[in-house]
């Protein structure tokens, strides 16, 4: 038992150490770098939490969730309303937002996850529309279509980064436990999973609830970052954003989700800044095209990733130092385009 206790304490130590490093780094960035960069990194952190949540239910458990933004809205609004109307302290509202989103996850997930096939995708998509309709029509409480202004600013870069670190630690523990293996078994083959005694409905609902809670956390971070909430923030495209991050980083790769969040958040900024830069030389058309070009690039990403690298940029692996080195080597030799589909592969 002593050896096991040592391992446990070592695990907590890893968490403590990485949390402290992240906090110090994030505080330094916040103190030294321009607000623009700090803000951008905060968004990356928020998106990482969202993407991690989506990855757990869809990448690991194989259940396609298209209502992720609906759960973000639930968390964001709950936390904001508790702080504004009831004057609850931030940590409590923050946790309550996540808990409420998780509860909704249970309500939606329990009936729909008993069904086989892709029904979950459509039920969750429907759920998102229902949430938006409710938010739009409960003006006294949520501000409705006018939005909810005056959400207290609480999401500093260190707070957001800390959330990412803790989430990543918990999830990487979870996927390396029996629960995580059962999630993957459900994705691989539900009937086989049942045959080895795995209660597939239980694990699907569990993954769904945890994922909804993470969406709720992220939604509440977002609200306390933008200091404003509006139903349209949490539309279908917000869900699709998480999907794009996860497929870029790899379905079933936790560090991949963070890499994905980083790319999907920063690359459009690069496009945007480039467009402004080009416009400075009077090349208005090129500038305009660059600004919009991201949209086509973004949409193509889904199709191309699924055809050429269905397991994500990192091939479904986790990010390790060794992996970074071999990826760099691959970039140098330009072997990345190898997987491009050819007409020969059709039958």
């Amino acid at each position: 038992m002593d050896g096991f206790r040592v391992k446990f304490i070592r695990g907590l130590g890893v968490l403590g150490l990485s949390a402290s490093v992240a906090w110090v780094l994030a505080s330094a960035i916040r103190a030294r770098l321009p607000n623009y960069i700090t803000g951008l990194l905060t968004v990356v952190a928020i998106n990482s939490v969202t993407a991690l949540g989506w990855n757990l239910v869809s990448g690991f458990t194989g259940q396609f969730n298209l209502g992720h933004a609906g759960f973000m809205a639930a968390g964001g609004y709950t936390s904001a309303i508790l702080m504004i109307r009831l004057k609850w302290p931030f940590p409590v509202s923050f946790i309550c937002g996540a808990a409420f989103a998780g509860f909704l996850g249970f309500l939606v997930g329990f009936p729909s996850l008993r069904l086989v096939g892709d029904y979950l995708a459509i039920v969750t998509l429907g759920f998102q529309y229902i949430i938006l309709a409710v938010l739009n029509n409960t003006t006294p409480l949520t501000g409705g279509g006018l939005g909810l202004a005056g959400v207290p600013f609480r999401t500093h870069l260190p707070t957001a980064t800390l959330t990412v670190v803790v989430t990543l630690w918990l999830l990487s523990n979870l996927v390396r436990s029996k629960q995580g293996r059962c999630f993957v078994a459900v994705k691989e083959d539900e009937i086989a999973a049942q045959s080895v005694g795995i209660n597939t409905t239980y694990y699907k609902v569990l993954a769904f609830i945890i994922s909804s809670m993470l969406a709720g956390l992220a939604g509440s971070l977002l609200g306390h970052f933008m200091m404003y909430l509006h139903p349209d923030i949490f539309n279908y495209l917000k869900t699709i954003e998480s999907v794009s991050m996860v497929i870029l980083g790899g379905l079933g790769s936790l560090t991949g989700s963070i890499v994905g969040a980083l790319c999907i958040t920063l690359v459009p900024e690069v496009f945007r800044n480039l467009a402004t830069f080009v416009a400075g030389f009077g090349l208005m058309r090129a500038s305009d095209f660059l600004r919009r070009g991201w949209m086509v690039f973004y949409a193509l990403l889904f199709v191309v990733m699924m055809l050429a690298r269905p397991r994500g940029l990192m091939g479904g692996r986790e990010l390790t130092w060794e992996g970074v080195r071999s990826f760099a080597a691959r970039l140098v030799t330009l072997r990345g385009v190898r997987g491009w589909p050819s007409s020969k592969s059709e039958t």
């Binding site: 206790r5 446990f8 436990s177 029996k178 995580g180």
Partner: peptide
């Protein structure tokens, strides 16, 4: 136990 990798988990 699975989330926190407690001694019980390791055992």
């Amino acid at each position: 136990d699975g989330l926190f990798h407690t001694p019980r988990y390791h055992m």
